[in-house]
Every structure is written in C-alpha cells, then in structure tokens.
C-alpha cells in the first residue's frame, strides 16, 4: 500500500507540491492526471524516493521512506519498477543487458540465466529478436516496451508509469495501454501512472486522481471522474481551453 501524506516540495521560489495526499491500495491501479508542469513527475519521483520532500511523508507498506537511510531506501526500491517518459534506456548497453540490469546487479543472477529471463520479459511485452540490438536502433514504441520489460524484470510489487503514452502514435499508445492492463492482470502489481492522456487514463485505471495547483483536488473511479461536478476536472477531462484552468503565459 502507498500512502502519501501532506507532501510539500519547492524548487527555489516555485512551489510545486503543496500538501499532496494520495492513497493507493494494494493491487490497485491509480492514474494521476495533471497538466504539463503540474508536478506529476515530481510526485512520482517522491514516491520512489529519488527526491526528498520539504515536508510530509511517503509510506510504502508501513515504512516511511522519507526517513530511511540510503541502504534502507535501496532495499525499498527493489519493490519498484518504473517506466520513464523517454524510456531512459542505458544507451551504452544492449537491449537484453538493459532488461537484465537489476538481475545482474542486485539479484546477482548468472549471466546466462539473466539473459534468458530478459528474453522472456521482452517476449511478455511483445518483442522478439531485439535482445542484441542497441537502444539507438529501436523506434520510440519499442523503446517504451523495452523500458517496461526492464521495469518488470525483477518482479516488482509496484509499477510506476511516467506518461506511458506520450510521444507515441494513437495505435502504439493503445498497444501500450493494453500492455499496462496485461501487466496488472498477470503480475497483480500495484501501479501508479501519471498522464494527461484521458483515453489512456480511462482504460488503465481503477481510480483517477487529479493534481492541480500542487494538491489532489479530486479522486474517483473513471465513471465518477467522467461525470464530475468539479469545473476544473471537467475542463481537463473534456480537453477544453475555456474554463477555470488558465494556460500559463497566455492571456484570456
């Protein structure tokens, strides 16, 4: 279970998170919506402990990770798998070495076995015969799949997705959505995805939360969000430029 309580974070004078509260139950699939620059990625990086909050706590299975030392933090991180927006593959390594990275380093698996596991994980995300390619030889959609294979390689309990469909064509985006749903069914993981792609949000989520002005303003099932009374949320999910959300730097 993931419990984010009163999370505050500023960068210089810019207040990004101003008291975020978010609870994700075990096995649940949560989607956090938010506009560009709303602090979605920052929230995700707090959950995995890459960023330290100014105040507030992040509790993972009863452990407050904001108070852990480095060693404890790396232990907790073994529960996580994360798919980055640009996939963040290590470009100096072959595809299978990317997927097997955690297996070879923290699980101390033998090279042959790790390679076999990597090939199997790649098959799970619909890729075959790419294991000896370099990341630079892959298309955007393939990179995301490899990123996903790497995120699930060490059998994490929690999967984090940073804008999984951004930058992909609609068909490829839907294929990634299908994969996310498949991961949830096959691996019964808890997951948090951040996105501004509503189609993706409706498809992959059990519950949806909306981050606006540094706080979660509404949480609900996809149906509740679709029929919300909240004007801010409604503007966002219908994708309208007119409404209470003002576009930064553009005058009305």
């Amino acid at each position: 279970m993931i419990d984010v309580v009163g999370l505050h974070k500023s960068f210089g004078s810019k207040k990004v998170l101003q008291g975020v509260n978010l609870k994700v139950e075990k096995g649940e699939s949560m989607v956090v919506l938010g506009g560009s620059g709303s602090g979605k990625s920052v929230l995700l990086k707090h959950i995995v402990g890459i960023l330290k909050p100014d105040s507030g706590s992040v509790v993972i299975d009863g452990v407050d990770i904001t108070s852990l030392n480095e060693k404890g933090l790396y232990e907790v991180r073994k529960k996580f798998g994360m798919l980055f927006q640009g996939a963040a593959l290590f470009d100096s390594m072959k595809v299978w070495e990317n997927v097997a990275f955690a297996l070879l380093r923290s699980k101390k698996m033998k090279v042959k076995e790790a390679r076999e596991t990597a090939v199997e994980r790649l098959r799970m995300v619909g890729l075959a015969g790419v294991e000896d390619l370099m990341p630079s030889e892959l298309s955007g959609g393939m990179k995301k799949r490899v990123g996903l294979a790497r995120a699930i390689a060490h059998e994490p309990e929690i999967l984090l997705y940073d804008e999984p469909t951004t930058g992909l064509d609609p068909i490829m985006a839907d294929a990634i959505n299908d994969l996310i749903v498949k991961m949830k069914q096959q691996l019964s993981v808890t997951s948090i995805a951040i996105t501004h792609d509503m189609q993706s949000a409706y498809k992959i989520s059990d519950r949806i939360a909306m981050l606006y002005n540094g706080v979660i303003i509404e949480t609900g099932t996809p149906d509740e969000i679709r029929n919300t009374e909240n004007a801010v949320v409604r503007q966002f999910v219908t994708g309208s430029a007119a409404g209470p959300i003002r576009i930064e730097g553009v005058s009305a």
């Binding site: 890459i50 980055f84 640009g86 963040a88 470009d91 990275f101």
Partner: peptide, 18 residues
Amino acid sequence: GTMRVTEQIDALETLATN
C-alpha cells in the same frame, strides 16, 4: 550529462543502483 537529462541516472536509482 546526457544520462542525467534523459533520466538514465534516475533509472539507475529505481533499479536500486547507487
């Protein structure tokens, strides 16, 4: 620098590697 701006350094952290 490239690893930092393409989030590869963050990825190392999430893969429990310092």
